[in-house]
Amino acid sequence: MTETDDRCPCGSGETYGECCGRYLADGRTAPTAEALMRSRYTGFATGATHYLLVTWHPSTRPDELELDPAMVWHRLDVLATDAGGPWDDTGTVEFVAHYRFDDGTAIGKRGRLHETSRFVREDGRWLYVDGGIGA
Results as ranks from 00 to 15, higher is better:
residue 50 H to D: 15
residue 108 G to I: 00
residue 16 Y to H: 04
residue 98 H to W: 06
residue 67 L to W: 07
residue 101 F to D: 11
residue 125 R to F: 10
residue 71 M to T: 15
residue 106 A to D: 14
residue 131 G to V: 11
residue 95 F to V: 04
residue 90 T to H: 09
residue 32 T to E: 09
residue 68 D to P: 13
residue 100 R to V: 14
residue 61 R to M: 07
residue 124 G to M: 13
residue 33 A to P: 15
residue 23 Y to H: 09
residue 101 F to L: 08
residue 24 L to Q: 11
residue 46 T to W: 09
residue 54 V to D: 14
residue 41 Y to L: 03
residue 49 T to W: 02
residue 64 E to S: 09
residue 63 D to L: 09
residue 131 G to Q: 03
residue 10 C to L: 01
residue 56 W to D: 13
residue 134 G to C: 03
residue 71 M to V: 15
residue 36 L to A: 05
residue 124 G to L: 12
residue 44 F to C: 08
residue 16 Y to C: 00
residue 66 E to Q: 10
residue 103 D to A: 02
residue 48 A to Y: 12
residue 85 G to T: 13
residue 114 H to T: 12
residue 39 S to H: 09
residue 39 S to N: 07
residue 74 H to S: 08
residue 126 W to R: 08
residue 115 E to T: 15
residue 91 G to P: 15
residue 74 H to N: 13
residue 94 E to P: 02
residue 32 T to D: 12
residue 62 P to D: 12
residue 58 P to H: 03
residue 78 V to C: 14
residue 60 T to A: 08
residue 51 Y to V: 00
residue 71 M to H: 08
residue 8 C to T: 04
residue 47 G to C: 11
residue 16 Y to S: 00
residue 64 E to L: 00
residue 66 E to A: 11
residue 18 E to S: 05
residue 96 V to A: 15
residue 28 R to Q: 13
residue 88 D to Q: 07
residue 107 I to Y: 01
residue 31 P to L: 04
residue 44 F to W: 13
residue 23 Y to G: 00
residue 1 M to N: 06
residue 2 T to N: 09
residue 69 P to L: 02
residue 4 T to N: 09
residue 33 A to T: 11
residue 42 T to R: 01
residue 6 D to N: 13
residue 28 R to I: 01
residue 58 P to L: 02
residue 112 R to K: 13
residue 17 G to M: 05
residue 62 P to K: 04
residue 131 G to C: 07
residue 75 R to L: 04
residue 84 G to H: 14
residue 34 E to L: 07
residue 133 I to P: 05
residue 28 R to T: 08
residue 45 A to H: 11
residue 2 T to S: 11
residue 39 S to W: 12
residue 1 M to S: 13
residue 5 D to V: 01
residue 42 T to G: 05
residue 68 D to Y: 04
residue 17 G to N: 07
residue 53 L to G: 00
residue 33 A to W: 12
residue 66 E to I: 08
residue 130 D to T: 03
residue 60 T to W: 04
residue 82 D to N: 11
residue 27 G to L: 01
residue 70 A to C: 14
residue 8 C to Q: 06
residue 36 L to R: 10
residue 110 R to I: 03
residue 42 T to E: 03
residue 96 V to H: 08
residue 107 I to A: 12
residue 3 E to M: 10
residue 18 E to K: 02
residue 100 R to T: 15
residue 69 P to G: 07
residue 101 F to E: 10
residue 55 T to Q: 07
residue 24 L to P: 12
residue 77 D to M: 11
residue 37 M to R: 06
residue 88 D to N: 10
residue 106 A to N: 12
residue 80 A to M: 04
residue 10 C to P: 11
residue 116 T to S: 10
residue 93 V to G: 12
residue 64 E to C: 01
residue 104 G to C: 12
residue 55 T to D: 13
residue 134 G to Q: 15
residue 73 W to I: 00
residue 7 R to M: 10
residue 128 Y to H: 15
residue 117 S to H: 14
residue 129 V to Y: 10
residue 6 D to F: 11
residue 110 R to A: 08
residue 52 L to N: 05
residue 35 A to R: 06
residue 106 A to W: 05
residue 24 L to C: 08
